[in-house]
Each structure stands twice: as structure tokens, then as C-alpha cells.
Design a protein around this nucleic acid. Structure first.
Length: 908
RNA sequence: GCCGAGAUGGUGGAACUGGCAGACACGCAGGACUUAAAAUCCUGUUCCUGCAUAAGGAGUGCGGGUUCAAUUCCCGCUCUCGGCACCA
């Protein structure tokens, strides 16, 4: 056998594979299908990241094994190529983004092939290809047609640096996630998708899928469905003028107003009346009510004030009933608030500020008078923008109460009975507890009190239960060039007109420069010959929409396109979708478990609803029945068609640079897989990626231990090579490896028999264990198993069948090496088409087993016993064993715990 | 603050539903081969006491608990990572 030369054999087999069809998925094949989906990469100029290398290699191993196990595997790849980095790069170098993209995807493709990844390269999809985005645009038109896309003048997050509107999701801690610039608010007319209409189904249908539990929790939290109650409260104003001073900078002259200093509190120059004041001190302002929203009405007996968001609509209405001085204070405060960015608020440490309006509302539970404040800690778009302040049981309310010296009342005692005064923020009790000081709620647990008080308020006609979501509609407009044009025109006569389907794709015009505009509109707005068009409805002059779609659009349905990538009649053939969908296993990063998952689930559901995702969708009732009958696992595929795109979803760990920092160009710690492949070969590189650590755990890059993997692979090559060399060969053709030798044992004189040799059995057991590990995504231990095997059996000789078995075991992990050895041993192309090792699990049973012997819970030795030996016989053996029985003087003991074939523990 | 994940030798990491902690690998030490180096191979390698390849003790982030037995289960913490966040 030649020396192991990965460069030569890897190139040779990659070329052969490319010409063959061994990796092709076969539509409608009778074998069971397996759809393994990998999040398609963004083809950046830097090429494949080591993280891609690792994840792709892992999936490749799993998929290769599944093919050998008899599955018809769909393992596709594509490019999520629209988006800012490419556009910014093109802007900087004044090149066409399409050209840059082509360069990048070519590079990725080369790298993937050089790793020997077994994608079905005939099914590549590219989101920037007009043949692809024609259908992205088509889906948008369908959404528009069904009323799920609308245009709204809405405040958007505006990044002043990128000059682009960002989705809430792209704003992290008040700054744009891409460039870390604090975002501003700007009003722009935006396309918005009504994902909230699917909120319940996106929430509930998680019961049908088999994601990691943490992913489901994350999805549910993001949707944030919670029961709330909106409580309508009457606004009242004090009968008497409450002004204390014209100038807050001066100490109010309490004495001269005959106000008792100890009993009266001052807020923004106004006297603050006690919440228990008599009704006659106030007059109702007819028809003026505010609706506060809360999900914790259980604590409302402890309410002592009400707070409005400074920019909410109530403020304008209430101004009529405020003094001019208060109005100017309110306006000043609102102005200051509007200038603050989220980042400002965070940097201020969320210090509470506010303004007293001089007005009050009446708590319907106890008729107490609650002063109304404005404060910027209340958000306009959460609930109704008006909240009821319960300082005893909400930390923010407590902080606010301290600013105005408002009363703090405990209405929930702790589970262990603590009911003392709330005197500091640490006493504020937000979670679990028992109601007190709360009238008819007293003694209830908070979880019981919530529905009870909701029912009460609703029955009194002052409250209305509402389900609210954290999820907001999806801002679908980007003021950018490098995205899918939104296929809509604006006509003076006909208004907003969707392009007719025949006019799709609406392609991006070529531009000489891709500069951004100062007013924040898309660069497309400058291409007048593209913008100015005719109205498809009336034929008159019209202008095209110049905003483009967000990056999320193309990735929201690519998994469907893979099923039928070249279809020009439909986004994909429905029978093919029925055959391949749902995705059996979706592999990806944690960064996409919220939005991408939500968006793509939404689109798939929508397409299912309008009949484009499946021919065989079960009705909701049938699906529910299956879920309730507990047969969901068996009938997963059936239930998910047209309903949920992914059956299972996992999250890979990421690869950090040395020292645990992220790899980045600026730090210069990026590892290029090309260099690894050049130095060690693809098989070693792949295997090392797997051996680094478990699939789902973050690991730090280090190339120190790659040497161990190379040693192992070289040893495997030499070991199997040696076996092939000593196999009996055809005498007429001594130089060629045996071609037709199917003889069992090559040890002379050994009789052929059906019985497998010990070593042959060990190989089969190895195959079984490696298979278990690979399918369980435990790639690192799969390799350990093979390492251990060769450590133990390096001197042993294998027969022909066992050599084949061992090559097969290597095939998923080191596909090139296995293919070459398969060829050397004289088997026809390709090992990757061969059937996985056949074994019989019952053959692996041994007749004896070694178990640890414990005395008083401490291991003092081991003993070999017959499998399934009973307790007494084990004790007898221990008594007979000179190294063990000295722990048992006179053979006396108190108690024995015996776990058959596992352990024996003798209490002396 | 909330949600999620995690913490095991010098290092990466094993240990299935509670049953031999440290598999496998790196590194290190010693040895073989070699003029030498690389490569390769062999031996040892959790820590402590011991001449020990004798025997014993400690040990899976920290403190408790359950159990014959805990890395694994329970209670209370600490720290690290990821996500969300004035969601009332």
C-alpha cells in the first residue's frame, strides 16, 4: 500500500464524485426520504468561516451515513446573498453587487467541494437570482392580495449611519446591530407584513414540532402571548385650586396656604390629594376616561397612582383640564422625552422622572383617587400607554413612588407569610405570593387572584380582557439597493397597484453608482428610467416602489425551493413539496432561532393556507386529533405538511478564536479552511472539526490537537492498507488487488463458516456504536470509538468482509480515504452507495462481564462474573477471591445492594 | 432584572434512564529508533501521603440535602456565555 497522500486521492475522488450522481436527491423515490437542511450561508468575501466548515462537515457525516442506511437524502445548499455587507463592499469599490456576489459564491462553492461535502450541487438556490426572487416577489403579491401586507406611516428605527430603517429585531440595546450606532426614530411610509395575524398559530403549533425545548421557549417568549385586562377609569379633577407655588425652584410656602406640612405632599407645585379623599373634593370630567392596561390586576388594591406615556394620545385630551403652568411643564417633559434615544435612557440608569398632571382617576376596585402622572418609563406602544402604579409589587413603580413620595401598600405577602411594610426596593415583591389587604381576593394565590379580579372587573363592566403579544407586525421595507424590489407601482389615478404576475420578476436595474441618498430613500429612487413606468391597470404614468425587501425575505422560503429549484411555473411543484417536506432536520445557529424561524414558519403557514405548500394538508381538526391522541411522532410528516416547515431543529455551537473571542477580520484571528486543507487534507480537516467537541457546544479554536487526528487517520490508512496487502490475491494478477474474492477468512486452514470471528464481531459492534453516535450528533465520541478500536486491534488481522465493514465505518467521516481504500480492495464505485454494515445487536452479548465491587460504597476491586449471575453466586465469588475477601473478615456483612451486570455494594 | 445554556486533570473533552469519574486526544516526562532532527513506536501522566508497579485519603464551581451509591436528583448560592429588556 502506498503512503497516505490525501492531496492526490482527495482531488481524484472529488472529480469523480462531481461527474457521478451519488449525491443527488431523487424526487419521488421509493426509499424513505430524509431532508437535511443547513442554514444557507451568506457568501461573504472572506469565504467560508471555520464555523461553516465545522457545521457543514458534521451534517455531511450524518447525511452520508443516512444514505448508506438506505435513505433518499435531500442535502441541498444555496446562497443567502442579498444584504448589506455586499452592498457596502460594492459601494466602497464601486462594483456591481451582483458581480461581487458571483465571485463570493464561486469561492464558497470551491471550498465546499474541496472539503468533499456531499451536497446535491444541482439544487443550488441563490436569493439574488431573478429566477429565484421572481417567486419571493410573487409571495409578496399573494400576501398583499390577502391583506397581509399593508403600507403604514409608522415610526421606524432609523440608523443615521447606515441610512436605513431597521426592524425592531435589528436594534440591540438601542443601537443598530450591524454598526453599533444609536438608532433614531423617524416616520416613513413602510410596507408591513401582518405576522401578528398568525401569532396564535405560531405559538400553538409549536406543540406539533420536535425542536429543542429551549428553542420552543424562545419562540414563545418572542411571541409573548399574555392575557391582559384593559380597565376604563374615570378622570376627575380637584374642586379647589391645588396650586402651591408658581415656581418649583422655590420651596413651596406651605405655611401661608394653611396646609398641614405633615399631611400634605407636593408634586410639581401642586398639592397632592390623599387617595382616600372624599368624593366631594373632586368633580367628574364627563366623557373623559383613560384605559389602563395590565397583566397583573391582582395587585390593583395596592394601586396609588396612574402613569401615562408622555407621547400617548391621552395627554392631548387631558391638557384641556390642566392649568397653563402644568401644560407648559407637560409639554416640556414630552419634548425632552422625544429627544431621548433608547441608549440615552439606558445610560441614565433608568432613573425615574415625571410630571404631575393635577388630575386623578378613580380605582374601580376601591373608589380610591389616583393621581395621574406622565413618565417616560411608560412606553406608548406597550398596552394602552397607560399603566396603574402599584409600588409595592412592581420595582419601577416603587422607584417612581419614591420620587414623588407616594404611598406604598403591600397587598401580597410572601409564601412564607412575610407581610411587613415595604420599605426598600428589595422588599418589592413581584412574584409568587398570597393576597392581603385586597378585599375579596384576600387569601388567594396570585395566580388564582388574576383571573378572579379580571372576571370581577369585566362583570362590573369596567374591564375588558385582551390577549396581547410582544410580537409586532414585520417591517418589510428597506431603503437599500441590494434586495428584492417590491413589485408595486404608485399611480395617481389607481393608487397602489401590484404588478401583474406576468411582469415578474421585477429585476433590479444596473446602476453606475450605488450611493445612498441623504433623505433616506432607496438608491433606486435615483434611477428615473426604472422608477417611471406605466400603471398596469390604467396604462397611465406611474412610479415604482423604490424600497426593497429585507434580507429575511429570501430566506423565508428557500427550503421549499430546494424541493424543485428550477421550476418556472410555480415556486415549487406541489407534489414535490409533498414528497420532501417537512424538513426532517434543520441545523443552524442560535442567532436565527427567533426571527428567521418565526418568519419562515409564518410564510410556510401562509403558503399552506392559500394552497401552495402542499396537496395533502390535513384539516386543523384532524391535526389536532392526532396531537391529542399522542400519535404525533408516528404521524409527524403527515401533520406538518402545509402547516409547519421543520420537524426538528437543533443549534450548533460556535467556534471562537483562541482566547474565547469571536473571530473577526479586525482581530486577525480568522482561520481559513483552505490553509488547513492544504496542510492536512480534507479528511483530516473534517475529522478534526468533529473531534473538537460536541455538536452543540461553543468551542475555542486551537490547532494543537489536529495532529492527533492526523495520526489517527494515517494509522487507519496504514492499518486497512496492510489488511488489503495481505488478503489473498488473484495469482494471475498479483499486482492488482483482489477483485472477486468474497472468501471469508484468509487465515489458512480456518474453515469457512457462518460464524463471525471475534474481530469481525468487534468491527460490527464498532459500526453499531459509531452509527448510534453519529445519528445522535455525537461526532466526537464516534471518532473516539474508532480510535479506541485501532488502539486495541492494531495487530489483528481482518477477513475480507471485515475490511469492507471497516472501510464503510470510515466512509461518512473520511469520505475520500474510504473511497480510495474501497477502490484498492477491489470494490466497485462507490463506497458511499454501499449498504451500511449489517449487524445483529444480539450477537454483541458477551458471556461474562466485569463489575466493580464496593464495600461501604467504596470501590475496592472488580470481579468477572457470568452475565445475569445472581446475587448469591457473586457473593460467593467475592468470598473466594483473595484480593477482595479481606474486606470481609469472617464473611460477615450487613446488607448487599446488587444491580445485575452493573455493580455490587456490600455494607459491612 | 427576566429567559436560556453551562462550570469535570496542565488543555479539548468522556461518563446511556443515579452504579468503576477522567474514555479518546493534545501536552508533558522518560525510553526505543536515528550521526542528528523530524516522523514513528513504547511506558507513565487527577491531586495528596508512600520506595512503591503496596496501601490509603481527597476530588466533577461553592454550601447544604436525599441515597447503599450523586458529575447525574432536590434546596440555596457564585461565576461564565448567549438572548431579551422600564411588557406594567
Amino acid at each position: 500500500m502506498e503512503k497516505y497522500n490525501p492531496k492526490e486521492i482527495e482531488k481524484k475522488w472529488q472529480e469523480k464524485w462531481e461527474k457521478s450522481d451519488i449525491n443527488k436527491a431523487v424526487d419521488f423515490d421509493k426509499r424513505p426520504k430524509y431532508y437535511a437542511l443547513l442554514e444557507f450561508p451568506y457568501p461573504s468575501g472572506a469565504g467560508m468561516h471555520i464555523g461553516h466548515t465545522r457545521n457543514d462537515s458534521m451534517m455531511d457525516v450524518m447525511v452520508r451515513l443516512r444514505r448508506m442506511k438506505g435513505y433518499n437524502v435531500l442535502f441541498p445548499i444555496g446562497w443567502d446573498a442579498f444584504g448589506l455587507p455586499t452592498e457596502n463592499y460594492a459601494l466602497k469599490t464601486n462594483r456591481n453587487p451582483a458581480e461581487v456576489t458571483k465571485e463570493n459564491t464561486d469561492n464558497f462553492l470551491r471550498q465546499m467541494k474541496s472539503l468533499g461535502l456531499s451536497f446535491d450541487y444541482d439544487r443550488i438556490v441563490d436569493t439574488t437570482d431573478p429566477k429565484y426572487y421572481k417567486w419571493t416577489q410573487w409571495i409578496f403579491l399573494k400576501l398583499l392580495e390577502k391583506g397581509l401586507a399593508y403600507k403604514a406611516e409608522m415610526p421606524i428605527n432609523w440608523c443615521p449611519k447606515c441610512k436605513v430603517g431597521c426592524a425592531n429585531e435589528e436594534v440591540i440595546g438601542g443601537v443598530h446591530e450591524r454598526c453599533n450606532t444609536p438608532v433614531e426614530t423617524k416616520n416613513l411610509s413602510q410596507w408591513v407584513l401582518k405576522i401578528t395575524e398568525y401569532a396564535d398559530r405560531l405559538y400553538d403549533d409549536l406543540d406539533y414540532v420536535d425542536y429543542l425545548e429551549s428553542i420552543k421557549i424562545s419562540q414563545r417568549n418572542w411571541i409573548g402571548r399574555k392575557p391582559w385586562i384593559d380597565i376604563e377609569m374615570q378622570v376627575v379633577m380637584p374642586v379647589q385650586d391645588q396650586t402651591v407655588s408658581n415656581n418649583t425652584d422655590e420651596t413651596p410656602d406651605i405655611e401661608s396656604n394653611n396646609i398641614d406640612k405633615d399631611k400634605v405632599k407636593i408634586a410639581d407645585g401642586l398639592r397632592l390629594l390623599d387617595r382616600k379623599s372624599d368624593d366631594s373634593d373632586f368633580k367628574r370630567i364627563e366623557d373623559v376616561k383613560i384605559t389602563i392596561a395590565t397583566s397583573r390586576p391582582d395587585t390593583n388594591f395596592g394601586a396609588t397612582f396612574v402613569v401615562l406615556a408622555p407621547d400617548c394620545d391621552y395627554v392631548e385630551h387631558l391638557k384641556k383640564y390642566m392649568s397653563s403652568e402644568t401644560i407648559s411643564r407637560v409639554e416640556e417633559y414630552s419634548l425632552q422625552t422625544s429627544k431621548k434615544t433608547q441608549a440615552d435612557r439606558i445610560s441614565e440608569g433608568r432613573k425615574k422622572t415625571g410630571v404631575f398632571t393635577g388630575l386623578y382617576t378613580i380605582n374601580p376596585l376601591n373608589n380610591e383617587k389616583l393621581p395621574i402622572f406622565l413618565a417616560d418609563f411608560v412606553m406608548k406602544d406597550v398596552g394602552t400607554g397607560a399603566v396603574i402604579g402599584v409600588p409595592g409589587h412592581d420595582r419601577r413603580d416603587y422607584e417612581f413612588s419614591q420620587v414623588y413620595d407616594l404611598p406604598v401598600i403591600r397587598v401580597v405577602k410572601t409564601l412564607d407569610g412575610k407581610d411587613s411594610e415595604i420599605e426598600s426596593i428589595d422588599d418589592v415583591q413581584e412574584a409568587e405570593g398570597i393576597m392581603m389587604n385586597s378585599g375579596f381576593l384576600d387569601g388567594m394565590e396570585i395566580h388564582d387572584a388574576i383571573p378572579a379580579v379580571m372576571d370581577y372587573l369585566e362583570s362590573k363592566g369596567v374591564g375588558k380582557k385582551v390577549i396581547r403579544y410582544n410580537l409586532h407586525d414585520w417591517n418589510f421595507s428597506r431603503q437599500r439597493y441590494w434586495g428584492e424590489p417590491i413589485p408595486v407601482v404608485f399611480c395617481d389615478k389607481c393608487g397602489t397597484v401590484p404588478l401583474p404576475e406576468e411582469q415578474l420578476p421585477l429585476t433590479l436595474p444596473e446602476m453606475s453608482k450605488y450611493e445612498l441618498t441623504e433623505d433616506g430613500t432607496s438608491p433606486l429612487s435615483k434611477v428615473s428610467e426604472w422608477v417611471n413606468t406605466t400603471c398596469p391597470k390604467c396604462g397611465g404614468p406611474a412610479k415604482r416602489e423604490t424600497d426593497t425587501m429585507p434580507n429575511w425575505a429570501g430566506s423565508s422560503w428557500y427550503f421549499m425551493r430546494y424541493c424543485d429549484p428550477n421550476n418556472d411555473q410555480a415556486l415549487a411543484d406541489k407534489d414535490k413539496l409533498d414528497y420532501w417536506m417537512p424538513v426532517d432536520f434543520y441545523e443552524g445557529g442560535s442567532e436565527h432561532i427567533n426571527l428567521h424561524l418565526l418568519y419562515s414558519r409564518f410564510w410556510y403557514k401562509f403558503l399552506g393556507d392559500i394552497g401552495y405548500a402542499s396537496n395533502n394538508r390535513l384539516s386543523d381538526e384532524e391535526a389536532k386529533k392526532i396531537l391529542e391522541s399522542g400519535k404525533i411522532k408516528e404521524r409527524h410528516q403527515e401533520v406538518l405538511k402545509g402547516r409547519e416547515p421543520y420537524l426538528a431543529r437543533a443549534i450548533h455551537g460556535i467556534v471562537l478564536g483562541e482566547g474565547g473571542v469571536k473571530m473577526s477580520k479586525s482581530l486577525g484571528n480568522v482561520i481559513n479552511p483552505d490553509n488547513l486543507i492544504a496542510e492536512y487534507g480534507a479528511d483530516v480537516t473534517r475529522a478534526y472539526m468533529l473531534f473538537m467537541g460536541p455538536y452543540d457546544v461553543t468551542c475555542e479554536w486551537s490547532d494543537r490537537t489536529i495532529i492527533g487526528v492526523r495520526r489517527w487517520i494515517t494509522r487507519m490508512w496504514n492499518y486497512i492498507g496492510k489488511q488489503i496487502d495481505v488478503l489473498p490475491t488473484d495469482n494471475d494478477n498479483a499486482t492488482a488487488p483482489i477483485l472477486n474474492n468474497t472468501a471469508g477468512n484468509h487465515e489458512d486452514g480456518l474453515e469457512k463458516s457462518d460464524k463471525i470471528s471475534d474481530i469481525g464481531l468487534a468491527v460490527k459492534q464498532l459500526a453499531y456504536e459509531v452509527e448510534e453516535d453519529i445519528l445522535g450528533l455525537k461526532f466526537n465520541t464516534a471518532i473516539s470509538l474508532i480510535m479506541k478500536f485501532i488502539n486495541e486491534h492494531e495487530e489483528d488481522l481482518l477477513n475480507y468482509d471485515s475490511v469492507l465493514d471497516l472501510i464503510k465505518i470510515m466512509a461518512p467521516i473520511t469520505p475520500h480515504l474510504a473511497e480510495e481504500l474501497w477502490f484498492q480492495v477491489g470494490q466497485p464505485f462507490s463506497v458511499h452507495n454501499s449498504e451500511w454494515v449489517k449487524y445483529n445487536v444480539s450477537d454483541f452479548k458477551k458471556s461474562t462481564v466485569v463489575i466493580p465491587v464496593q464495600f461501604n460504597g467504596k470501590v475496592r476491586g472488580r470481579i468477572e462474573i457470568n452475565v445475569d449471575a445472581d446475587e448469591q453466586s457473586v457473593i460467593d465469588s467475592i468470598l473466594a477471591d483473595s484480593s477482595l475477601n479481606r474486606n470481609l473478615p469472617e464473611g460477615k456483612y450487613k446488607k448487599v445492594i446488587f444491580v445485575p451486570n452493573k455493580i455490587i455494594n456490600i455494607i459491612v
